[in-house]
């Protein structure tokens, strides 16, 4: 399948070669039709600079960007006509109504059947009642949804979404996630997705890239990334004396600690959890509560920011 977006050795240095800094350092990746790629990283990692280069708002120092197999630099307008972007920092004219704003953007993208498309999007994002209100008068949640409507107006083949659910109520955020998944599944839209909500990223993204200090330091499916983090934590509450538990864990060389009298926390690989629980039960330990914390993207993210992650 032809990649919708191909990024090759993309770099951006700000300032002079001696006193400047490298914001994006030799980044390469592809994004295929119908794929949702998460772009994560701590503040200052280079995510925003990468996205702004992908949108043509910053010129790269080196590297190439291609959309639909054609270089972005020489096919800028044709590329921009087929992609779109939504972010809290790219708004629409505040002193114009929602409908008028969408009409303008529909015109700039040469959308056909404009009125119907606008009505459809306002209904989809549940902001029909804001249509004739000035944009600045909307709540931040309504603004986010109108920006999303703008991002969908041209039926893009690729959407760059930067924190698309920030400032949304949980029910509306869930609806937006559903819309994104539907676009991916039914229309094959590719999405480059950034968010600080790791659960959301795990739920939505097929693949995740994590940036740190301008470089891609990890890239895989959310599941594979979390596997590399390793241990789960099992917290067991039990009845009876703790000596039996202590001696069993020591004998099996499990890393553990007793946070409270009859509670023990054990760090171990996920696949060893059943063995631990059966082992304790066979020793005659009466387990009254079991809590299992498996590592998620949050832990991957934290281990990267602490520098303890290995590719």
């Amino acid at each position: 399948m032809e990649p919708i977006l191909t990024v090759s050795h993309l770099s951006k240095r700000f300032g002079s070669p001696t006193h400047g800094f490298v914001a994006v350092d030799d980044v390469s990746f592809t994004l295929r039709e119908g794929e949702i790629l998460g772009l994560l990283g701590p503040n200052g990692a280079g995510k925003t600079t990468t996205i702004t280069m992908l949108l043509g708002l910053i010129l790269p120092t080196a590297g190439d960007i291609s959309y639909f197999g054609k270089p972005f630099g020489s096919h800028r307008q044709a590329s921009l006509a087929r992609i779109n972007f939504a972010s809290s920092y790219a708004q629409v004219q505040s002193k114009v109504t929602v409908r008028q704003n969408l009409l303008i953007y529909a015109g700039l993208y040469a959308v056909r059947d404009t009125s119907r498309r606008i009505a459809e999007l306002l209904r989809l994002l549940e902001v029909e009642d804001t249509a004739d209100q000035l944009f600045w008068k909307l709540s931040s949640g309504q603004k986010t949804r109108v920006i999303l409507a703008k991002a969908l107006i041209n039926r893009p083949r690729l959407i760059l979404l930067d924190e698309p659910t920030s400032s949304l109520d949980p029910d509306i955020a869930a609806k937006v996630i559903d819309i994104i998944k539907t676009l991916q599944k039914k229309e094959g839209v590719a999405i480059l997705y950034t968010s600080h909500n790791m659960r959301e990223v795990e739920e939505v993204c097929d693949r995740v890239m994590i940036m740190s200090h301008g470089k891609i330091v990890a890239e895989d499916t959310p599941l594979e990334l979390t596997k590399k983090i390793g241990n789960a934590r099992v917290t067991v509450t039990f009845d009876g004396p703790s000596e039996k538990v202590f001696s069993y864990l020591n004998a099996k060389q499990y890393r553990h600690r007793f946070p409270r009298g009859q509670v023990v926390a054990v760090d171990l690989p996920g696949k060893a959890i059943p063995k631990l629980l059966f082992g304790l039960a066979n020793e005659g330990v009466w387990l009254t509560d079991i809590d299992i914390e498996k590592p998620g993207l949050e832990e991957v993210f934290l281990s990267i920011t602490k520098g303890s992650y290995e590719r």
Binding site: L55, G56, L57, Q77, A78, L80, A81, N84, F85, Y89, A90, Q91, V92, Q93, S94, K95, Y105, L108, Y109, A110, F135, W136, K150
Partner: peptide, 18 residues
Amino acid sequence: LWEMWSKSFNTLFITPLT
């Protein structure tokens, strides 16, 4: 300037507009 103050200047230029 009105577009810059509205944070919409960039939004215009990520369309095919030149």
